[in-house]
Computed example of a mutant assay.
Amino acid sequence: MARYRGPRLRVVRRLGELPGLTRKSPKRAYPPGQHGQARKKRTEYAVRLEEKQKLRYNYGLTERQLLRYVRKARRASGSTGESLLQLLEMRLDNTVFRMGMAPTIPAARQLVNHGHVTVNGRVVDIPSFQCKPGMEIGVRDSDRSRKLVEENLQFPGLANLPSHLEFDKNKLTGKVNGVIDREWVALSINELLVVEYYSRQA
């Protein structure tokens, strides 16, 4: 299944606030479609599916990618749900977004894809690149790259910088100091339901 490229507010209306997908807020508080205002009794499967979709749309993943992350999280020690969120939060595109270098995760992915971001001084154009503690995230040494990031820094997607990151707005460089804590994950989600959803597949 391909990555979603359709109307973002439609997804937000259906799933609730997704800070990584868009900064806009919908005018209508009910889901889209002809039966959006009708109250429907949701099954347990529907609840789990909705939580999984939140994760997928917020981080801009394909179904195959998310399944791969779930399998990787299962192999890690500790809580599978927390490990899954940490893997997703430590992606390069999300790290760039959390540092304020891009207004949304799709914008951060584009910034990375176009070669504007460096890791430890080298250009990395893979959005799914896993950032590790000690890595330095910077902007490519070109006027165009610096101008893009400086414009984005005026209107960051999220106001608060997580405790595991630091960023110098003057030098346009940041550093990963550790792995993100669960409390700093901006998305409101029950990760255990996502793990339960994939329990038969992963």
Rank of each mutant, 00 (worst) to 15 (best):
residue 54 K to T: 05
residue 148 L to Q: 08
residue 63 E to K: 04
residue 4 Y to N: 02
residue 155 F to G: 02
residue 109 R to W: 06
residue 45 Y to D: 15
residue 150 E to C: 09
residue 29 A to N: 13
residue 176 V to D: 08
residue 8 R to Q: 04
residue 63 E to A: 08
residue 11 V to Q: 02
residue 62 T to E: 00
residue 48 R to W: 11
residue 121 G to Q: 06
residue 58 N to K: 04
residue 83 S to P: 00
residue 173 T to Y: 04
residue 159 A to R: 12
residue 131 C to A: 10
residue 197 Y to I: 14
residue 50 E to V: 08
residue 82 E to D: 06
residue 111 L to Q: 07
residue 70 V to D: 01
residue 114 H to N: 11
residue 72 K to T: 02
residue 105 I to Q: 07
residue 186 A to W: 03
residue 55 L to M: 02
residue 104 T to I: 09
residue 42 R to D: 08
residue 18 L to P: 03
residue 202 A to I: 13
residue 88 L to T: 05
residue 78 G to V: 09
residue 107 A to S: 11
residue 51 E to K: 00
residue 174 G to Y: 12
residue 9 L to P: 05
residue 138 G to L: 11
residue 191 E to W: 02
residue 9 L to G: 00
residue 91 R to A: 09
residue 103 P to Q: 13
residue 175 K to S: 04
residue 130 Q to S: 10
residue 193 L to C: 13
residue 175 K to P: 05
residue 129 F to S: 04
residue 42 R to S: 13
residue 33 G to R: 00
residue 57 Y to C: 02
residue 180 I to G: 04
residue 124 V to S: 04
residue 29 A to H: 14
residue 40 K to H: 15
residue 141 D to C: 10
residue 161 L to M: 14
residue 159 A to C: 05
residue 154 Q to C: 09
residue 77 S to A: 12
residue 19 P to L: 14
residue 143 D to Y: 15
residue 196 E to Q: 15
residue 96 V to Y: 07
residue 129 F to R: 10
residue 109 R to E: 06
residue 121 G to S: 09
residue 22 T to E: 00
residue 174 G to A: 02
residue 46 A to P: 02
residue 86 Q to H: 06
residue 105 I to M: 11
residue 144 R to L: 15
residue 82 E to N: 07
residue 71 R to H: 05
residue 76 A to M: 13
residue 135 M to Q: 11
residue 60 G to K: 03
residue 129 F to Y: 15
residue 50 E to Y: 03
residue 149 V to M: 11
residue 197 Y to G: 10
residue 77 S to Q: 09
residue 75 R to D: 00
residue 127 P to R: 07
residue 174 G to S: 01
residue 12 V to F: 08
residue 85 L to A: 04
residue 146 R to C: 11
residue 115 G to D: 01
residue 40 K to M: 12
residue 176 V to E: 06
residue 191 E to L: 12
residue 39 R to N: 13
residue 191 E to R: 12
residue 41 K to C: 09
residue 98 R to F: 04
residue 177 N to Y: 07
residue 47 V to A: 00
residue 71 R to C: 06
residue 66 L to C: 03
residue 108 A to I: 11
residue 10 R to M: 10
